[in-house]
Amino acid sequence: MKRFEDHNPIAVFLYFAGVTVPVMFCRDWLLPLLCAAGVMLYGFSSEGPAAGNKLWLIPAAAALLAVINPIFNHNGMTVVLLVNDMPVTLEAAAYGAATGLMLGAVFAWFRYFSEVMTSDRILYVFGAVSPKLALILSMTLRYIPLYSRQAGIVRRAARASGAGRDETVLDHVRTGLRVFSVLVTWGLENGLVTADSMVARGYGGARRTRYAIYSWRKRDYLLLAAVLILTGAAVTAVAADWVGMDFYPYIAVREMTPLTAAAYTLYAILAALPAAVNLAERVSWHRRIGS
C-alpha cells in the first residue's frame, strides 16, 4: 500500500499534467470547481489542517478576480451598476470567479507538484527519455550546490586574507569578479579529478544502462492506466467541446446530456483520485493495525 506521492514518478507526473491541462483550456464553471475540490481533498488527506496554508488561495483568487474582472472587462448584457459611465456586468463577475477558481486550483496543484516531485523524481521522469540526459541532469544538480558553497568559501577566504575590500561599489564588483575567476580555475582544475573518477569507473565504454530507485509494481501500473484513461477522456471532452459554457453575452450553462454527465463524472474521478488513494491507504492501516 502506498501513498499517492510514493507511486512511480512517471504516473504521478502524468497525473499532475492530466488534472490541470484540461481545466486550463476550457471555459467552464463546473470543471474548475471539480478541480478545486480535488486538490482540497488531496491536501487535507495528505497533510491535514496544514493544507489550509496552500488552499486558502483558491477562494481568495476566485473572489479577487470576480471583483477585478468587471473593472476592466465590460462585456456582457446584465448590467448591475454603472461606475463613471462604465457598466459593471454580472457576466464579467461570473467569468472572473470561474477563472479565479481555475487559477487558484491549478496553482494549488502546482504547489503540491513541486513538493511531491523532488529533484530525483523529476530526474527519473526526464531520464526515461535518455540515460545520458539523466546523467547530465544528475551531475548538474550535484554541481549547483557544490559551486554555490565554493563561491561562499572563496569570498570569505578573500575577505579574511585581507584581499577583499568592500567599501565602494567598485570594490564589490572587483571582489565579485575575483570570486568568479577563482571559481572558474578551481572548477576546471578539479573537474579533471571528476573526469578521472568517471573514466576509472568505465564511463564512455559500453552502452549505459539506467538504475533508478523507483520501480513499477502492479499499483503503479494501475494508477498509470487510470490516469491515462481518465485524462484521455477529459482531454477528448474538452477538445470536442462536450463540456464548457459561454459567459458572454449571456451566461449560458449548457443542458446536461448523458455525454456531458459522463465527461464530468470521469473528470471528478480523476480529480479525486489522489485523495482516494490516500484514503485507501489509511483505511488499510486502520483496519489491520487499529488506531
Binding site: 529533484s119 530525483d120 546523467l135 544528475s138 551531475m139 544538480l141 550535484r142 557544490l146 578539479n190 573537474g191 579529478v193 571528476t194 578521472d196 573518477s197 568517471m198
Partner: peptide, 8 residues
Amino acid sequence: EQQIVTDK
C-alpha cells in the same frame, strides 16, 4: 569532493 560524480 571531486571524485563523486552524481547528486544522490
